[in-house]
Amino acid sequence: MTLNADEAARFAALLEENQDALVSAWTDRVTTSLRGRLSHAELQRQTSELRRGFQQALAGTAQGISDAAAAELRAQLSELSASRARQGFSATETAVSVFAFKEAVLATLDSSGRNDATTLRDYVAFSSFVDDAALFTFDSYVRVREELIADQAEQLLELSTPVVKLWEGVVAVPLVGTLDSARAQVVMERLLQTLVDTGSPYAIIDITGVPAVDTQVAQHILKTVVAARLMGADCIISGIRPQIAQTIVALGIEFGDIATKASLADALRYVLAQTGKKGR
């Protein structure tokens, strides 16, 4: 059910005439539903802006939330859901903030004694307009949450793969935990980028924190080493603990001519000896 042009215009007028009463009734309801987690003043500012948004959309004879005349209102609702999502409110709490507008409007109609048939029919049409607006808010809330979660996952990935400059000309990447394909990709990219940024001829890949080196992990490491070599850098694998060494041997993985060291310190000592030789 959509609003026709007359209904929209009549409602726009009603929202204008009763703006103070509406904003105050709406703010009270939202404040209660959020149980005081946002201040009354903050919510009053939000509802008063949203009231203006609804009023202008209807004055522009928007018949539904996806109309061009409702573009400004949609932007406001998206902003509302984004800030609520970031503040940790639930999708329901966010949508209820919009639904509450209907109750505020109904209360205002009641108290002004307007209960003629036209007003009621207008109200029903208006009510479905608000429902759509609330669903729109719900959808954009979900979208924002998904983006937030994806961002956090990415940040975690990056956090867990720091590439550090260990020494002049030597960068190191300590691998920690499970090296799945997504992380292996991030590790490789960040290592190669750091090699470019620092112009380092040596990279140490430290696997002390990797609980098991299987063929997939080995393959990721081998690919990274090959890519680093193509960029003119030598890789050393360090942190190979005894149980990992024995497992790698039994599995049949060969690291070929890649230098491997028991500890990060050994690897650094090895690199410094190499550069010492070259310097001479």
């Binding site: 609980p211 098991a212 299987d214 005894p242 149980q243 024995q246 497992t247 039994a250």
Partner: peptide, 14 residues
């Protein structure tokens, strides 16, 4: 043993 744990986990992973 730690070595056997690692071997078994790695085999299971494969």
């Amino acid at each position: 043993s730690l070595v056997d744990q690692t071997k078994l986990v790695t085999a299971a992973s494969e």
